[in-house]
Amino acid sequence: MLEARLVQGSMLRKVVDAVKDLVSDANIDVSSSGFSLQAMDTSHVSLIAMHLRADAFEHFRCDRPMSMGMSLANLAKVLKCAGSDDIVTLKANDDGDTVTFMFESPKEDRVSDFELKLMDIDSEHLGIPDTDYCATVTMPAGEYARICKDLSSIGDTVVISATKDGVKFTTSGDVGTANVTVRQNTTADKKEDQTIIDLKEPVALTFALRYLTSFAKATPLATHVTLSMTRELPVMVEYAIQDMGHLRFYLAPKIED
C-alpha cells in the first residue's frame, strides 16, 4: 500500500497546475524513491519529468512500486479543494482503482478527503541520458516568464543564443523583431534577483515559443529557473521543487527546413 504525507501540500497543486495544459492524462509512478511523472505533451514535442523525493514527505510508505494513471484535469480539481496551508496525505491500496487525498488544516480543525478514480494509461518511458551542456543559465523564474510573454507577442519562434556576452533571446514576426539579452549578475542584493551563466561553448538553438511559455506556468514553484542547452539537443528547463525534487521540461529544437 501507499501512504504519503506532505506538509507543504500546495507544492502538489503547483506541480499539477504547471503541467496540466501540456498533458491531459499521465501515470504518477510511486516507489520507495518517491513520486515521479514522465509524460510527453500531446504533440510529442516536449517531455515533462517530475520527481518528488520520498524524504520530502513527513511520512512515506510504499510497499511496492505502483503506477497511478489519472486525468490531470481531475487531479487539479481535487487539489484545488485543499487549503493553501493544508497538509496533504495520499493513500492507495496495491491494485486498487482509486487514490484518496486527505487534506488537514494546519490548526487541525478541518479534515476532508477526496477519492479520485484511477485509469489505465499506456505510456512510453523515455530514457534521458546525462548530458554535458554547453551553456547553463540560472535566472529569476519571473524574468524567464516575462521574456517568454514579451517575445510571444512579437513572434512564434525564438532563437536562444549563449555567448560570452550573455544569453540572447531573439524573435521576429509581422510587427518586427525583438531581442532580449540576459547577462550574468551575481552582485544583486537579493539572491532571487541573481543570474548565473555557465558557458563552456557558444550555442544557439531555435524553439517554439508556445512551449517555452507554457513551461513558465511552473513559476510559482521556484525563485529561479535553469535553462541548459547543447547543440542540436533539446533544451532542459528546470524548476527546483525546493529541496524536495524537481520539475524538468525538455523541448525539441526546430531545425532548418
Binding site: E124, L126, T157, P234, Y250, A252, K254
Partner: peptide, 14 residues
Amino acid sequence: GGKQRSIASFFAVQ
C-alpha cells in the same frame, strides 16, 4: 520558423 522535431527522436524508449 524551421521544422519541429519530435522529442521522442532524441530520447530512446525504455
